[in-house]
Design a protein around this nucleic acid. Structure first.
Lengths: 198, 198
DNA sequence: CGTTGTGTTGGCATCCTGCCAATAACTTCG
DNA sequence: CGAAGTTATTGGCAGGATGCCAACACAACG
């Protein structure tokens, strides 16, 4: 038996990825403090020390997981930026985009962002904040408003809060149907964009 | 020197309160993991072991701190429940109430709820959730709508998300003035309450 | 003033984490 | 095809934080 070496050597990116995958799974089902590095290592089939090699520390690994789920990878992929159609249509499309991109990686997203509550960690909060910023900017872009107007950005960031909460009601508490969630978000966004920024 | 006994015996409630106070201060300025029980004990002028006597563990102490800040103690105190005045007036009053009650215990509130991001802990999330529920119910009451209609509740809970985010923009990021925050919240709430619950 | 009840303390045992030197898998060159 | 080199990977060690528990002492009571 020359096979089954006790160690298997992988290209760094690949190994890094597998660790990240295992960590995401565990962090998705249990809070940070209740997940030990031993578990993650076991799940990834790796020695515990290796986690510290690829990521500074447990916290660094966690931040990386969060970063991935927050940045909405689909964000860059599809941005048709339709400047055509009525405002109502563009708004509708923007809401559609948002709900879809969340639906894609629902589990992780909700575990991290959707729970809609406490950021016990400022750095994590900053990441989520950044994610909200990107999403808001993208929505503004879709709708066809100026994404560089600070006041407009602030208002849309507020709207992002509404979006998260609505998401939560729809996908976690099931107090709203997707239909209802969609309509609520659409109506309010339309209302906000129509409103003059006094 | 008969004074300054190495130990001082306090009635349980009092001691419990002083510990809670110290913990709230520290948890307010640093995330959970970065606050050690040694610090809390020192801050409260107490042996570390006493924390475990009054609260199960560090986590239990934290939950108690969160519970206090989330429940918006002022919530019960002032609920004039004005059924008089126009809808616009009642909405305005509700928003006013919300902004005021948050303004009161701003620091703790923002440290726990206002950061508007991740709930790494489901139990904490449940608490915040409950707080949002109470607040939403109260707002509905102030506005004069039925607080037992599940759909209406869901919608107002979504609105609570908007409120948190707006709070964040106003009081943390300073991208909105209180005036602007107030107007935004007022307008949207008015819009939502006017909207038929299709 | 001795006794009882319990608020309070200090230290022990355990678990988790970050660090680091040794090891071995994979590659490359002679 | 074999040996040297590179570095991915491992296992163990030390520090720190937490939960637990038995002893202690402050206050009230008889």
């Amino acid at each position: 038996m020359t096979t089954a070496p006790t160690r298997r050597r992988l290209p760094p990116d690949e190994r890094r990825e597998s660790i990240l995958h295992a960590a995401a799974r565990l962090f998705g089902e249990r809070p940070f403090a209740q997940v030990t590095t031993v578990e993650i290592a076991r799940e990834a089939g790796v020695a515990r020390g290796l986690l510290n090699h690829y990521f500074q520390d447990k916290r660094g690994l966690y931040l990386e997981v969060v970063r991935r789920s927050v940045l909405l990878p689909e964000l860059e992929t599809l941005s048709p930026a339709r400047t055509s159609g009525s405002l109502a249509d563009r708004v509708d499309a923007a809401v559609q985009w948002f709900l879809d991109s969340v639906d894609a990686q629902a589990t992780t997203y909700f575990a991290v962002v959707g729970s809609e509550a406490v950021a016990d960690d400022p750095e994590v909060a900053a990441l989520v904040d950044h994610g909200a910023d990107l999403a808001a900017r993208h929505v503004l872009h879709l709708v066809g408003l100026d994404a560089d107007d600070p006041l407009e950005m602030a208002r849309v960031r507020c709207y992002a809060g509404l979006a998260r909460a609505t998401l939560h009601e729809w996908s976690v508490r099931h107090t709203l149907s997707r239909q209802q969630a969609h309509e609520l978000l659409r109506d309010v966004l339309l209302f906000l964009t129509a409103q003059p920024t006094d």
